[in-house]
Design a protein around this nucleic acid. Structure first.
Lengths: 334, 334
DNA sequence: TTTTAGCACTCTTTGTATTTGATTGCTAAC
DNA sequence: GTTAGCAATCAAATACAAAGAGTGCTAAAA
């Protein structure tokens, strides 16, 4: 579709613009890229690239910036995904090799590492609670009116919650309940905890409503509560020149504050491990001025959490994707 | 020290400036406050108030704004602390009366409520882990290589952590260890878990280092890890006119990102429940352009968590303090 | 046919005056 | 003790000019 020179020009413009945030002129290009052509030749190529929608101008006599279509072509065809230095490799390895006990923490650590290496803002979320199976339930009596319920899922996620009672209960009762609940819930999806279960338990056990109800309610509450989002490096955004516009900055902060939005973005990822959404490609209106790269970490086909980078359209896609690919490989090795 | 009219002028200027964020002119003042004096008289009073350092000008022919000294006098002498509406009272009551199981969550809910009512940014932190006593330890075997340790403190704070082993252990061992650890640690400050304890346990129990060491290490790790900060309403700051200056906005975001800073601020509170730090009164260089109001929630003399509001010096101290005082009363009633 | 030199044209950026309007401080009168 | 009145001050808005960077296009060179 594009001849080699055009590809080279487009790639150079994207990379130069990512670096400088200034429209790229024909002169700047031949200097930076040591192109063996005159500026007039490059200008002609740039005019062509603009004609097919890969470049834009900010005004008639300005240099060019990539259009969203230009970024897309760059990401799909031109981008190098080994743009990662020895220092970065070392840093990432060390970060990921520190012992992490819980998967949710692993997602956090990974997100935080990505943010630190790329200097972009990351958001992350652990494995989706609702779709998981209950591997085991453990009840521990803390005092006669307080019990801790521990829920272990098939992805080794562990959730704890405290349950308070209005009457005293004893160890024996806890044991029975633990047995009954496990009997009924083991290997079930978390959403099993519903009305019929409640009635079943009332029938099987002779314990009062005052004992069974708080347990069911609290477990339900824990499982239904939104999975917690983790945000890292939001302040980095303010070092980017596009955030000199207060409006953009405000917009950005507001997007990060909209948990529903962020969650949707993280869940929207397709089959791929890594997905790139550039500007208008984002479903959500509020994100159309930004680019989002999502990274889904899986073991087999078990979802282990998703991480998203939210940044300007002028994002260093090459660096971001290189880092994610490296981390992906590293995680599979663990 | 100040005559009544001066007090009235100072109070009016603070309140007007808090509202409008514009320097207050003598003319605006007589209009808004229905003062029975001419603008020239008010100008004389304003000149006097400036002479003693309670007011400032942004340039020679501008209206006046309060100085930090002015705010301080306002907070100490003029401020009304019943500046709270029926709607706000209702909203706060409902928020605080929803059942909360853990103290850390109570601190979060409170912080979030304060942010929602005042529209300022709040940061909060639960009761300080390190200074608490261990009330009880519970070990629960999850599988032969994995155990959950539950630590209950004297303020009913509950911390859980997962411990992984490199060799299988059984229920019996867990029971023994649970007994031994409790024996040694009950009613001790959390920092007791030190070298001598470790040796004691090796001696008393015949279990291998591979079993005991991970437990001690992991418990230590949990107790030493920073107490988690909770941030709410950061985006509200961007609606304030002072944040139209990108530099201020950036500064603000950076402060919020500096956990050490924020933590120090929350801990710096004195004996009082509510403390106000205006601009330069803040110990930390980075906060000298902001005002901070901290609110410490105690039951008896047990610290139950601290909440801080970080906002512009032009803060609505009256609203903030009124809300905090009301919440404080409410919490004591619970 | 491809490439390039050259130049007119466009538009942003920067700098400089000029004007407008709000507000004060001070003086003299009430 | 209070106030009217007025010169003085300064920020903010407006207007204009000059400089500079970059393009598009034409015609010539390769």
């Amino acid at each position: 579709m594009l001849n080699d020179r055009k590809k080279r020009v487009l790639q150079a413009i994207v990379e130069e613009y990512v670096n400088t945030a200034e429209p790229v002129s024909s002169k700047a290009l031949i200097e930076k890229e040591h192109l063996q052509y005159s500026s007039a030749t490059i200008r002609n190529e740039m005019a062509d690239l603009e004609k097919i929608g890969f470049l834009e101008k900010t005004h008639t006599s300005s240099g060019r910036i990539p259009s969203e279509k230009g970024y897309r072509y760059y990401v799909d065809e031109l981008l190098k995904d080994d743009n990662i230095s020895m220092e970065e490799i070392k840093y990432i390895s060390e970060k990921l090799e520190t012992k992490v006990n819980e998967i949710e923490d692993l997602t956090k650590v990974t997100a935080s590492t990505i943010s630190e290496v790329t200097h972009y803002t990351t958001v992350s979320i652990g494995p989706k609670t609702k779709t998981q199976l209950i591997k085991e339930l453990k009840f521990v009596l803390i005092n006669p009116r307080m019990m801790l319920a521990i829920i272990i899922t098939n992805t080794e996620m562990i959730k704890e919650t405290i349950i308070k009672f209005e009457e005293d209960i004893n160890e024996k009762q806890v044991e029975t309940m633990n047995y009954m609940f496990n009997q009924k819930l083991k290997n079930q999806p978390l959403e099993t905890i519903d009305r019929p279960l409640e009635e079943y338990l009332y029938d099987e056990m002779s314990y009062s409503v005052k004992v069974i109800k708080p347990i069911i309610e609290q477990i339900k509450k824990v499982l239904e509560q939104e999975d917690q989002l983790y945000l890292k490096g939001a302040n980095n955004a303010f070092d980017l020149p596009e955030f000199n516009s207060l409006e953009v900055a405000k917009n950005f902060i507001n997007v990060l504050d909209r948990k529903d939005l962020v969650e949707d973005v993280l869940e929207s990822g397709l089959a791929e491990d890594i997905n790139v959404y550039i500007g208008e490609e984002n479903q959500k209106e509020e994100l159309k001025d930004f680019s989002v790269v999502t990274f889904r970490h899986k073991i087999g086909n078990k979802d282990m959490g998703t991480i998203g980078i939210i940044g300007p359209k002028r994002m260093d896609y090459s660096k971001v994707i290189s880092v994610m690919k490296y981390i992906n490989k590293k995680l599979k090795d663990l």
